Simulated scan of single mutants.
Amino acid sequence: MTKHRIFSISVASVYPHYIAKAEKKGRTKAEVDDIFRWLTGYSQQQLEGELAQGTNFEDFFAQAPQLNPARSLITGVVCGIRVENIEEPLMRELRYLDKLIDELARGKKMEKILRG
């Protein structure tokens, strides 16, 4: 799958997989939503609106009210690639999200996940 095709996938089509991954490890949809909101600055209502509209990842991140400046503290490996070394900005944002969901599923405390 090319980068362009990845970015054109709707957030809503992947969102249930994030929730399933979290719930399989005893975490909640509310925690997944907390991660989305922390990373992007969307309110819960805005997040639900973007999901309902079928917004793709490119637009989702481009239109984010306030990308969290602390997201640069997110480090580690996702899909065999170090997140902090990803040069393409949109791919880095997507992998930040993946990394946070991975941390949630691994049982990390929300305060640590949200770099508090």
Rank of each mutant, 00 (worst) to 15 (best):
residue 40 T to D: 03
residue 92 R to P: 01
residue 50 E to H: 12
residue 43 S to G: 09
residue 88 E to T: 08
residue 38 W to D: 08
residue 28 T to L: 09
residue 32 V to Y: 07
residue 3 K to S: 11
residue 52 A to E: 12
residue 10 S to V: 07
residue 96 Y to G: 00
residue 50 E to L: 11
residue 62 A to G: 01
residue 104 L to R: 04
residue 47 L to K: 08
residue 50 E to N: 10
residue 34 D to P: 00
residue 53 Q to V: 02
residue 51 L to H: 02
residue 87 E to K: 15
residue 9 I to L: 14
residue 43 S to V: 01
residue 70 A to M: 07
residue 2 T to A: 12
residue 77 V to R: 14
residue 10 S to E: 11
residue 41 G to V: 04
residue 29 K to S: 07
residue 75 T to I: 06
residue 9 I to D: 13
residue 88 E to P: 04
residue 46 Q to L: 10
residue 32 V to W: 08
residue 37 R to A: 08
residue 3 K to N: 14
residue 34 D to G: 00
residue 7 F to M: 12
residue 39 L to Y: 02
residue 11 V to H: 07
residue 54 G to H: 09
residue 77 V to C: 10
residue 23 E to Y: 01
residue 31 E to C: 01
residue 104 L to W: 06
residue 101 I to V: 15
residue 25 K to H: 15
residue 61 F to N: 05
residue 77 V to M: 13
residue 97 L to E: 06
residue 52 A to K: 14
residue 30 A to G: 00
residue 60 F to Y: 11
residue 8 S to T: 15
residue 50 E to S: 09
residue 20 A to M: 09
residue 78 V to F: 10
residue 25 K to P: 02
residue 42 Y to F: 05
residue 31 E to S: 02
residue 21 K to T: 13
residue 2 T to E: 14
residue 71 R to C: 06
residue 90 L to W: 11
residue 24 K to G: 15
residue 3 K to R: 14
residue 38 W to G: 08
residue 111 E to Y: 00
residue 62 A to W: 02
residue 46 Q to A: 14
residue 67 L to V: 11
residue 116 G to N: 09
residue 113 I to V: 10
residue 25 K to S: 15
residue 47 L to Y: 04
residue 69 P to I: 07
residue 69 P to C: 02
residue 35 I to P: 01
residue 57 F to N: 05
residue 18 Y to G: 11
residue 50 E to M: 12
residue 11 V to R: 04
residue 2 T to W: 10
residue 57 F to T: 06
residue 45 Q to N: 08
residue 55 T to P: 03
residue 83 V to Q: 02
residue 17 H to S: 14
residue 54 G to P: 07
residue 72 S to M: 09
residue 49 G to E: 11
residue 37 R to E: 12
residue 114 L to H: 00
residue 38 W to F: 12
residue 102 D to S: 04
residue 77 V to Y: 13
residue 90 L to N: 10
residue 55 T to R: 03
residue 14 V to C: 14
residue 84 E to H: 09
residue 5 R to M: 15
residue 15 Y to T: 01
residue 6 I to D: 13
residue 41 G to H: 03
residue 59 D to P: 06
residue 84 E to S: 09
residue 46 Q to F: 08
residue 87 E to I: 11
residue 78 V to L: 06
residue 20 A to I: 04
residue 100 L to A: 05
